[in-house]
């Protein structure tokens, strides 16, 4: 198994140490270069403060103020006909900028254009819910709360959606270990048997090839089972051979190691 290295500090350290390495960037175009987007951005800029805007891969990206997210999306939906919220979530920038970037992906079916609205919030800052504009934001905001711990104001039912309700921690934050913190590793044992069962059940075995033939709690050996929990470290029961079909054993289980006779050309013709 590949050793697991905690990536707690992954954001602070660059993966690449090559001095001459330049992260590839997708080229950014001016919004004025597209006739639909240039009109849209004009209308947006007249009403809201837009800190940055560009076209990337043929899609308009705008950066807005986190307080104006509902108004901007309402304007985009009602006036500019971006009627469909395809996706929304957040990106963890806690280590670099102490906050989250929230993005909304909108689609206009009539214009056949997509727009990405981005905004940045600080760690403990809340964002206003947009679920009254787009129904799909309901679950997406719950997921954002579940995975990043971002509070969403005026959401009708802000509760964890994927993880259990009593879960601790926010799994999609970059500081969350992939194999879980202590709470996650003991979650099912604590919940079902109680904390005192931790010693009996033991820690999680992360090596999927792990076999302990003397462990009669977890491993039953077919053909010579012993009662659960018996100590077999001293005398082993004899192993018996597998029963093949030819020997009156299990139906369809054939002895493939049996030497097979190769027919000569003459014998084959005679058959």
């Amino acid at each position: 198994m590949r050793p697991y290295r905690p990536k707690d500090n992954v954001q602070k350290k660059a993966y690449y140490n090559d001095r001459f390495y330049v992260t590839p960037q997708i080229p950014k175009d001016d919004p004025a270069s597209d006739e639909v987007y240039s009109k849209d951005i004009e209308k947006l800029q007249s009403k809201f403060s837009i800190s940055e805007s560009y076209i990337q891969r043929g899609e308009l990206v705008i950066y807005i103020d986190p307080d104006s997210n509902v108004e901007v999306l309402e304007f985009l939906k009602d006036e500019l006909d971006y009627s469909f919220l395809m996706e929304m979530s957040a990106v963890d920038f806690l280590a670099q900028r102490e906050g989250f970037e929230i993005f909304y992906e909108l689609l206009s079916l009539s214009k056949r254009k997509r727009i990405r609205v981005k905004t940045f919030i600080k760690e403990n800052q809340a964002i206003e819910s947009v679920q009254h504009l787009f129904r799909s934001a309901n679950f997406a905001e719950r997921e954002m709360f579940d995975m990043f711990g971002i509070q969403v104001n005026n959401h009708p039912y802000l509760k964890r959606i994927l993880m259990p309700d009593d879960w601790e921690g926010y799994p999609l934050r970059k500081t969350y270990p992939l194999q879980g913190d202590e709470f996650a590793q003991w979650y099912e044992v604590d919940k079902i048997f109680g904390k005192e069962a931790r010693d009996i059940v033991g820690p999680e075995i992360r090596d999927s090839a792990h076999i302990d033939r003397y462990d009669t709690e977890r491993f039953a050996r077919l053909g010579h089972e012993v009662p659960r929990g018996t100590d077999i470290s001293k005398d082993e029961p004899d192993t018996d051979n597998h029963e093949f079909q030819e020997e009156g054993g299990v139906f369809l289980i054939k002895d493939l190691n049996k030497p097979q006779k190769v027919l000569s050309e003459k014998e084959r013709r005679e058959r």
């Binding site: 993880m163 799994p171 969350y176 270990p177 992939l178 194999q179 879980g180 913190d181 996650a184 590793q185 099912e188 044992v189 059940v201 999680e204 075995i205 992360r206 999927s208 977890r218």
Partner: peptide, 11 residues
């Protein structure tokens, strides 16, 4: 091999 999966139903 993640935080969300029980590592073996025998737990």
């Amino acid at each position: 091999n993640t935080y969300a999966t029980v590592q073996g139903a025998d737990r």
